[in-house]
Write a protein that binds this DNA or RNA. Structure first.
Length: 417
RNA sequence: GCGGAUAUAGCUCAGUAGGUAGAGCGUCAGAUUGUGGCUCUGAAUGUCACGGGUUCGAGCCCCGUUAUUCGCCCCA
């Protein structure tokens, strides 16, 4: 039997790969203009890093990690913990009190694959480390918004919330649990389980019965301190330029233990049930937890696959690398070495050109030139080589220009790009 | 981890009551000597996912496996 790719992985063949690279480069430019610096970390990390940061009880750590070497190492399931680990390990806090970092990388989680969910997937993300100011929250969200906008996405919404400090939250969790225990029999099975493991997650249950019960449940926001509320309210003000797509959702909680204060999600309605294009939040305790002095930070991660799905759903156009400036048709055997000289010379000047490798008829070569979306075609046969002249044809309108001197072809190419 | 669906040419899919496969698109080649896009003609390509069973005979029925897909959970 044929060998197949592992479950939940995918190949990006030529055009898809080109589009992915295009998006990556596009995103890099935006990160650069926001003065975010790239950071790269290993593909695998010490398993303890994820257990300590994401949380032992989360689904990711408890059952979705690709671990090996007797569990010592794990393929990274997310990037925030590795970035902070690297930040601490490299003493980056000594370089500057505020660091803005970004990454583009693939992640691994042993989940059941689904639309928009893979076992190996690609993310880009940013971490703003060292500032607890609302400015940092605002910039992070505006950056995320700018990237999705400039990529060409139109239809996405932003949900935002504050889940407060660990102390504020733990008091809330006690109240929430007390309230929910009164309805335990009526809760969905999932929520019964969550009542023990992570009651907070019951808040974003989709079960209709759960939703009914939640209507009169305690509200997390009311348990926040004045400082936390003030931070959140100031942030919302700073985000007034994008208020049209912003919706405050007091039930938005996130799955990683390290989140505190601000949390947010960018969602698309066009890509099925895995609708989060991007998610993030503040994690003010993580760096300290991993060995640094107290260091507030905020970040986000976005999924390439989901963004690409959304772009496709919106029929956005992304270059796929299929255009060609010049196709050189060969007629007869003699011109081949001259053609090789000519295209090599053109290529050295950055001209994207192609010729035939199969000894086909001129007609077939023309068809190929058309399929490759060549802007110009030139046919070189014995006559042209001998007279050192040829005709260059525009594939757009079929017009023809006479060329004198085959080494001057480049002068006749009008690259409209 | 749980539930539903699907698996036939490179792609999208037909395949009638079980009798050993078809279309469109794409690819390739032609339609007077070296010139594309439209049209026409022709060609190639399938262990009908894999393994087993029922049957004289299975792409069609049954069982198993694998993969894909949609949803739950979770998340990007």
């Amino acid at each position: 039997m044929q060998i197949q790719k592992p479950k939940g992985t995918y190949d990006l063949t030529t055009k898809d790969a080109y589009q992915r690279t295009y998006l990556e480069n596009f995103i890099r430019k935006i990160f650069d203009s926001y003065n975010y610096k790239e950071i790269r970390t290993p593909t695998f990390e010490n398993t303890k890093l994820f257990k300590r940061s994401i949380g032992e009880e989360t689904d990711i750590v408890s059952k979705e990690m690709y671990s090996f070497n007797d569990g010592e190492f794990t393929l990274k399931p997310e990037m925030t913990a590795p970035v902070i680990r690297a930040y601490v390990e490299n003493r980056m806090f000594n370089d500057a009190p505020h660091q803005k970092l970004y990454y583009i990388s693939n992640m691994f989680r042993r989940e059941r694959p689904q639309a928009g969910r893979f076992r190996e997937f690609s993310q880009f993300g940013a971490e703003s480390i060292g500032s607890g100011e609302e400015m940092a929250d605002a910039e992070m969200i505006l950056l995320a918004d700018a990237i999705l906008n400039e990529i060409g996405l139109k239809n996405f919404k932003i949900r935002i919330n504050s889940i407060g400090t660990i102390e504020e939250r733990s008091i809330f969790i006690i109240s929430l649990r007390e309230y929910l225990i009164g309805f335990e029999e009526d809760l969905s099975n999932d929520s019964k389980r969550r009542l023990v493991i992570n009651p907070l997650r019951i808040l974003d249950s989709k079960d209709p019965k759960d939703l009914e019960i939640l209507e009169n449940a305690p509200v997390l926001y009311e348990y926040l301190s004045e400082d936390s509320k003030k931070h959140f309210e100031s942030l919302i003000e700073l985000l007034n330029s994008i208020s049209d797509k912003l919706s405050i959702d007091y039930k938005l909680v996130r799955g990683f233990d390290y989140y505190t204060s601000t949390t947010f999600e960018f969602i698309s309605s066009a890509i099925g049930s895995q609708n989060a294009l991007l998610g993030g939040g503040r994690y003010d305790m993580l760096a300290e937890h991993l060995g640094a002095k107290p260091t507030p930070a905020i970040g986000f991660a976005a999924g390439f696959e989901r963004i690409e799905m959304a772009l496709k759903a919106e029929s956005a156009i992304i270059p796929d690398g299929s255009e060609l400036l010049l196709y050189v048709c060969s007629a007869g055997e003699n011109p081949r070495s001259r053609i090789l000289q000519i295209i090599t010379s053109l290529r050295s000047k950055g001209i994207k050109c192609e010729t035939d490798f199969l000894g086909r008829s001129v007609k077939s070569q023309m068809k190929e030139a058309d399929r490759m979306k060549a802007k110009y075609v030139i046919v070189l046969g014995d006559n042209e080589i001998e007279s050192n002249s040829a005709e260059i044809k525009s594939m757009f309108d079929g017009s023809v220009i006479k060329i004198e001197g085959l080494d001057k072809i480049i002068n006749y190419l009008k690259d409209e790009d």
